[in-house]
Amino acid sequence: MLLYKQKKNQSAKGNRLLISITVLGSAGPIRFVVNEEELVAAVIDTALKSYAREGRLPVLGSDLNDFLLYCPSAGSDALSPWETIGSLGARNFMLCKKPKTEKIEDDGRPTEAIPRKGSGNWKAWINKSLNLKISSH
């Protein structure tokens, strides 16, 4: 009963939004309702849980710190985890894994982290996919 009252009060605070989150490499977007005042970090967490519950592939993991949320209509920068999801007025987002870095040691000294090849952003992945489709025709 207490949980029900809390949820009811939360929905009274702000507007609720139906959002779509596309995961790179997955068959289709995940859709769910969020409060517009919810933080991006919480939305990423909800998306990962929903993705896993649906048994989607590829398996992503559950650490929200390993992911970035993009709004394709707002530019190429990832959203800040402390930003509210409704701040951009957008409903469609893209979830990507953060690029992994590998440390290379030279003479026993750790050097600067170097990003792995092929760990580009979502725009590079889309362009690559489109080029494959065009060249196969």
Score class of each variant (00 low, 15 high):
1 M>Y: 15
1 M>A: 03
1 M>T: 08
2 L>K: 12
2 L>R: 14
3 L>P: 11
3 L>T: 01
4 Y>P: 00
5 K>S: 01
5 K>Q: 05
7 K>T: 00
8 K>L: 06
9 N>S: 13
9 N>H: 05
9 N>W: 02
10 Q>P: 00
10 Q>G: 02
15 N>T: 06
16 R>I: 02
16 R>V: 03
18 L>P: 03
20 S>C: 05
22 T>M: 11
22 T>Q: 12
24 L>K: 09
25 G>M: 05
25 G>I: 01
25 G>H: 02
26 S>E: 08
26 S>F: 04
27 A>T: 07
29 P>I: 03
29 P>Y: 07
31 R>S: 07
32 F>N: 02
34 V>L: 01
34 V>A: 03
35 N>W: 00
36 E>N: 12
36 E>S: 15
37 E>T: 08
38 E>R: 13
38 E>N: 13
39 L>Q: 15
42 A>D: 15
42 A>G: 11
43 V>C: 07
43 V>Q: 04
45 D>K: 15
45 D>Y: 11
46 T>G: 03
48 L>P: 06
48 L>E: 09
48 L>T: 01
52 A>C: 06
53 R>V: 05
54 E>S: 04
54 E>L: 08
54 E>R: 02
57 L>Y: 08
57 L>E: 12
58 P>N: 03
58 P>L: 06
59 V>N: 13
59 V>G: 09
60 L>Q: 08
60 L>G: 02
61 G>M: 12
61 G>H: 11
61 G>F: 11
63 D>P: 00
63 D>G: 02
65 N>D: 12
65 N>A: 13
65 N>P: 02
65 N>T: 14
66 D>N: 15
67 F>K: 03
68 L>F: 04
69 L>G: 07
71 C>A: 15
74 A>I: 06
74 A>P: 01
75 G>Q: 07
75 G>Y: 09
75 G>N: 04
76 S>G: 11
76 S>H: 10
76 S>V: 11
77 D>T: 14
80 S>N: 14
80 S>D: 15
80 S>W: 11
81 P>C: 03
87 S>V: 06
87 S>Q: 13
88 L>A: 08
90 A>F: 00
95 L>I: 06
96 C>A: 14
99 P>F: 06
100 K>N: 12
100 K>G: 10
100 K>P: 09
100 K>W: 01
101 T>V: 09
101 T>G: 04
101 T>D: 05
101 T>K: 14
102 E>V: 10
106 D>L: 14
107 D>M: 10
107 D>N: 14
107 D>C: 10
108 G>T: 01
108 G>Q: 03
109 R>S: 07
109 R>T: 12
110 P>V: 15
110 P>A: 06
111 T>V: 11
111 T>D: 00
112 E>P: 06
113 A>N: 14
113 A>H: 11
114 I>D: 01
115 P>Y: 07
116 R>E: 06
116 R>S: 04
116 R>F: 12
116 R>A: 04
117 K>Q: 10
118 G>I: 02
118 G>Y: 01
118 G>R: 02
118 G>N: 13
119 S>Y: 10
120 G>S: 12
120 G>T: 12
121 N>M: 09
123 K>D: 08
124 A>Q: 09
124 A>P: 00
124 A>F: 04
125 W>K: 09
126 I>V: 10
126 I>Q: 09
126 I>R: 12
127 N>A: 13
127 N>E: 11
128 K>C: 07
128 K>L: 09
129 S>Q: 14
129 S>H: 08
130 L>N: 07
130 L>K: 13
133 K>T: 11
134 I>A: 10
135 S>T: 08
136 S>K: 14
